[in-house]
């Protein structure tokens, strides 16, 4: 797997260094490590499916065919079509649902990270920059959340809010913010006293400008690493919540909910219902993990301790 090369240096200010040289190094690290290439290729494929799935899908992913339910892969479907990957318990085409599922699953993953990341970054910046009671309140809120097993918190809110794609994104996102907040806070604390921040202050920049224009760009790099690991864990959480009946509504295909739906038919050997979404999840999670590793090695080997 990815070697962390001696080149992996700290980026003190990513905007400052030669972009081209950085890009070359990024590609070189990736090629040397080999695995990240597979990860990127797979994620591009998944993204392609997410964007163009509607055109690629041979069937309407929600069209039922009760008499053709639980058909094995390659079985004949309706209207002369073929169920390439079989059909599910309502006779819906697994392949088409998998393609549409890419869109929802990846959207949920990225949106949850965006929600969690945004809340976490803002909270961390405020806590780190202002310190004092602001810091206390924000960090105590973080403690409260961490003291809950996340899944219980998620269950509680989904039971109350009802399950829907947006509620799911919200809950999964809010579940992530503390991680980001803590890292951003620590970085902000140390940057606050740095010369270039002092300089900005001396030049009379407004506080929001200092926080978001001067400090923020300098702490983003490590967050991308955490984000790429978190996409993977969000996709898994989504599957777990689907299993508990709290995921997306049943007519919306996601890989997690497809896998959760397959559990009743496992004992009946309808393997295709579990294997295809299972493999899709596995490859996605794998890719994001590999990508996270690579990013970490690329950006700063010392980040390891914190992720």
């Amino acid at each position: 797997m990815s070697d962390h090369t001696a080149e992996g240096l700290v980026l003190s200010n990513p905007r400052g260094s030669g972009f081209r040289r950085e890009a070359e190094r990024a590609v070189r690290v990736m090629v040397n490590a080999r695995w990240p290439i597979f990860a990127v290729v797979f994620l591009l494929l998944a993204a392609f499916a997410a964007v163009f799935g509607a055109w690629l899908a041979p069937f309407d992913p929600n069209r039922q065919n009760l008499v053709l339910r639980l058909a094995a892969p390659m079985a004949a479907g309706p209207d002369g079509g073929v169920f390439w990957l079989g059909s599910d318990a309502l006779g819906r085409d697994v392949f088409s649902r998998l393609l549409y599922g890419a869109r929802v699953s990846l959207t949920v993953g990225f949106a949850a990270i965006t929600v969690g990341g945004t809340i976490g970054i803002v909270a961390g910046l405020l806590a780190g920059y202002f310190g004092g009671w602001v810091d206390d309140v924000i960090m105590r809120l973080g403690d409260i959340q961490l003291a809950f097993p996340f899944i219980l918190l998620a269950i509680m809110f989904l039971v109350v809010l009802g399950s829907g794609v947006w509620n799911l994104i919200l809950v999964l996102g809010v579940g992530q913010w503390v991680t980001y907040a803590r890292i951003v806070r620590a970085d902000t604390l140390s940057l606050r006293e740095k010369e270039f921040v002092e300089a900005a202050r001396a030049l009379g920049d407004s506080t929001p400008s200092i926080i978001f224009r001067t400090i923020l760009p300098n702490i983003l790099a490590p967050l991308t690493v955490i984000a790429s690991f978190n996409v993977a864990s969000v996709i898994l959480s989504e599957a777990a919540l689907s299993f508990l009946g709290l995921g997306v509504p049943p007519e919306v295909p996601t890989w997690g909910s497809m896998l959760a739906e397959s559990r009743d038919t496992l004992v009946a050997n309808k393997w295709w219902l579990a294997v295809f979404p299972g493999v899709a999840i596995m490859l996605t999670v794998l890719s994001f993990n590999i990508l996270g590793d690579w990013l970490r090695d690329f950006l700063d080997p010392r980040l390891r301790e914190r992720t």
Binding site: A232, L236, A239, A240, F243, G256, L259, A260, R263, L266, V267, A274, G278, I281, M282, L283, T284, V285, L286, N289, I290
Partner: peptide
Amino acid sequence: MLGQSIPSFWMGIMMIL
């Protein structure tokens, strides 16, 4: 890597079976 990408409920049911 694999261990980090298998949902626990699915693994549980597969192990049961």
